[in-house]
């Protein structure tokens, strides 16, 4: 496996290096999965809306994500932060399901020294696993803690919007299981989709908007305090 990966990579590197990428890929017909998909979806902009009026903090999404990718213990592509706010009897719980924000201006991509982290034409921020050297800089630079090092393969990983499902027309695993239908996924560029309508018609919040990362996970009815790192103190 390891070996195969390496071989594939060196060819790929060579292609890049000699500036023949696109042409060579076309000629040899060996475009990678991600590239092939990307070519077909160039006009798309995938996004997720999380409707916190619906979410009841059940963690089905994060466990579904664990299962889909067999995410190792102690690492998360998705989790549900829960904060209690207010004073008895006016206290409330606030839930914040988290995942990669698929930022339009992602520091993780900017910092990556090998272009392993990249933005696909459909807006998904993904990692070329065979190019990743495991330097962890993207992990350090992501303002949202969305990334981790795979303890076995020693490369960076994170939520990829379930590319392997959505490119085949099936919703991401977390969306599929959410009993509250609080997670809605779709193409923001297509005005007929739920996500496009929701983002257009309802006030939505993105996390740490002030950082200028332009997240593409939008929250409806988010509690601002919960979205902050210090929400609720330590």
């Amino acid at each position: 496996m390891e070996n195969m990966e390496k071989r594939e990579m060196s060819r790929r590197e060579l292609i890049k290096w000699t500036g023949l990428g696109a042409a060579a890929a076309a000629v040899t017909g060996v475009a990678k999965r991600a590239e092939a998909a990307a070519a077909a979806v160039g006009d798309k902009r995938y996004a997720m809306v999380i409707d916190l009026r619906r979410c009841y903090g059940c963690h089905a999404c994060s466990v579904a994500c664990k299962s889909e990718f067999d995410v190792p213990l102690g690492r998360w592509r998705s989790w549900v932060k829960t904060v209690e706010r207010g004073t008895y009897p006016n206290a409330r719980k606030h839930f914040l399901p988290r995942l990669c924000n698929h930022c339009k201006k992602p520091p993780c991509v900017n910092v990556c020294p090998t272009s392993a982290s990249h933005i696909r034409p459909d807006g998904i921020v993904d990692i070329h696993e065979d190019l990743c050297i495991g330097c962890k800089n993207c992990i350090a630079m992501c303002p949202y803690n969305s990334r981790f090092t795979d303890p076995v393969r020693k490369i960076a990983r994170k939520c990829d919007f379930c590319i392997h499902r959505i490119t085949k027309g099936i919703a991401p695993s977390c969306v599929n299981t959410c009993p509250a239908r609080a997670r809605i996924f779709g193409d923001l560029n297509d005005p007929s989709t739920q996500v496009a309508k929701l983002v257009k018609r309802l006030p939505v919040l993105t996390l740490k908007t002030e950082l200028g990362t332009h997240p593409h996970v939008f929250y409806i009815a988010a509690d601002e305090s919960t979205t902050r790192a210090m929400g609720g103190g330590e």
Binding site: M9, E13, W17, N110, P113, T114, A116, C135
Partner: peptide
């Protein structure tokens, strides 16, 4: 994480990346 791949640092130059 992948020491052998350090070479990719020198097959790329990414303007935006201090690394």
């Amino acid at each position: 994480g992948r020491m052998a791949r350090f070479i990719y640092l020198f097959t790329h130059f990414i303007v935006t990346s201090p690394v």
